[in-house]
Design a protein around this nucleic acid. Sequence first.
DNA 1: TATGAATGAGCTTTCATTCAT
DNA 2: TATGAATGAAAGCTCATTCAT
Lengths: 190, 190, 190, 190
Amino acid sequence: MNGKRDSSVYIPTKERILNAALRLFSVKGFRGTTIKDIAREVEITEGAIYRHFRSKEEIIEHLVRRVTGEIRELVKRKVLPEGDVVSRAKALAEALLNYALDNPDSFRFLTVYHILKENGGAERLPGGLLIETFREAYRKGELGLHPEVAFGLVTGSVEKLFILWELGMVRTHRDILIEELKYAVEKALS
Amino acid sequence: MNGKRDSSVYIPTKERILNAALRLFSVKGFRGTTIKDIAREVEITEGAIYRHFRSKEEIIEHLVRRVTGEIRELVKRKVLPEGDVVSRAKALAEALLNYALDNPDSFRFLTVYHILKENGGAERLPGGLLIETFREAYRKGELGLHPEVAFGLVTGSVEKLFILWELGMVRTHRDILIEELKYAVEKALS
Amino acid sequence: MNGKRDSSVYIPTKERILNAALRLFSVKGFRGTTIKDIAREVEITEGAIYRHFRSKEEIIEHLVRRVTGEIRELVKRKVLPEGDVVSRAKALAEALLNYALDNPDSFRFLTVYHILKENGGAERLPGGLLIETFREAYRKGELGLHPEVAFGLVTGSVEKLFILWELGMVRTHRDILIEELKYAVEKALS
Amino acid sequence: MNGKRDSSVYIPTKERILNAALRLFSVKGFRGTTIKDIAREVEITEGAIYRHFRSKEEIIEHLVRRVTGEIRELVKRKVLPEGDVVSRAKALAEALLNYALDNPDSFRFLTVYHILKENGGAERLPGGLLIETFREAYRKGELGLHPEVAFGLVTGSVEKLFILWELGMVRTHRDILIEELKYAVEKALS
DNA sequence: TATGAATGAGCTTTCATTCAT
DNA sequence: TATGAATGAAAGCTCATTCAT
């Protein structure tokens, strides 16, 4: 009677709230999403949300921490510290795009979060982590571009390709998309 | 006597409202920016805004039309229809990045507008215009990547470099940034 | 260039404002009619109205005085003090209905004014004048009904017939309508 | 503990809002009555009203439906289809006046609603129902007046007598008022 | 006289949050 | 845990009125 959609797996309310909020925030923005919107999606009442979170702000912080954590983890796992810059950049591009395509709401959410300063909120680009890869290679003389430019090219390409994909504008197969991305990264950074 | 900010040129209120709104929307989003915010910036009262625009929505529409028009115009002027894809892509990247660096508020505004669907509003990527450049080259066999991928690489790179620049994360000279961007585009598309 | 509708007779702006206001107030009520509504109708700007009237309130007062004055005058002229009650009541009914049909806006205006207490405004039924006719007859024993009832029957009938006429619900000829009204009044009061 | 006004019966907030709105609208008109007015009367805040109604407009629609429904019901119950026109008209007049005197706010509300077109709103005279009574009799040759005229006389008289009564201008006993009304209707229609 | 931009108060409505149940 | 009525602050918008031109 409470597990939502009966026979399916049970998902705790707190989790359901976070999932709904993630999706809504990523599409309608933070101010554009109301507590009522989230409650309606989860099929509970507004008041119930405050059993699980102290405020709307807290939900956002929770989500930011979760998504940046996931990406940090992913990069740590996929972009190994050995190897040349180019292969590491390719691995980064592949991992990021895969994450975006597999977790579109999360990726969108982060994009929205980084672009908007609705609150005057602090900025915490997970770039901090990623960009080091390029800085190091630059110092070693392995990179023909400034590290920030290289970083921008790779991550910017991934983000835009994801958006175009979501809009249905990219008509290639997913695997081909990733191959082309890696190919272009390889050539651009060589 | 009325020109705001001492002896400088007179700017009509309607224009001042648009400028303030552009900047605020581009930073705090549409819902995050209130009419009061705009009024405060322009140093008039909220009611006065409604002498120039029927609604907040109308201000947004006005700005979208203006900014997309400017970019459309720019692309038409700078990206000449002759020449190979690569040089045209380079010209596109250069023109876009220059526009972004010269009109940061406008460029940010458009980014925010395209990402957020606070309203469920219509989508009008100015991509329509730009992407044709790549589609045509692809048909002629001049392009090694799918046109949408090429388009995503170029515009995504520009957008992300602009954001990094704005955050003060890019430490190169502006000219060098543009040169590196063009160089990377050239290699990626060849 | 100023006389409104070119070649036609010149009507001073103040008069045009009053006419427009009369019509609008009578249809949309006092709060429902804005100064802008009136200005638009007269084809001047809002500010111009304040050259002729100190406030919206003053326009209303002006119109109340005008319309009650007209009706007072009319009754004085048409309902002669000689004759029996019945013929005087018939004359009253006829005069009132004729006035209403000839000056629908004025008559509607007064109805609205008497029904609404939007302002907490004072009531000044022009009934004061008319009802005396019946009070006197009642004292003389010429009237089978209480004077207020007789007054209500006659004026209420006129008002409702006017409204039905305006709504297009009365399909008889105007003269017949008046004849039937007088006939009914005669019988009711005898 | 919450029932408002000490120990008396509990009335749900939605009902209290409707009652307050009915009274205020009937006196000050639709535009002249603010949500704050209603809230103050009910002793809740403005926001609370929107938990029960989506808009001011919805409150008005609710009330129109309620009052017209009541009168429709009343006429159905009191004005039996058998009998001659005159007795039916008398029954109608009596039922209407009784309703008005018993539910002055409702009756006033309907009057205001029918006279004002603040919204450009639809017209739904409950007359549709009542007037058929007269149309039928007219076809059968039982009625000396056009049916719309007869309808206007009866309902107009009721409405005006009600207003005079409310203003304290009718000094007779209520029963006598009704008797005189019926007597006049009888004679007018015979 | 007339214009039209501007003001300021007030209106309808929204929304994060609280609280009694 | 959950509900849902209520609060209170703020948002978008309207409008009578003023004022410089």
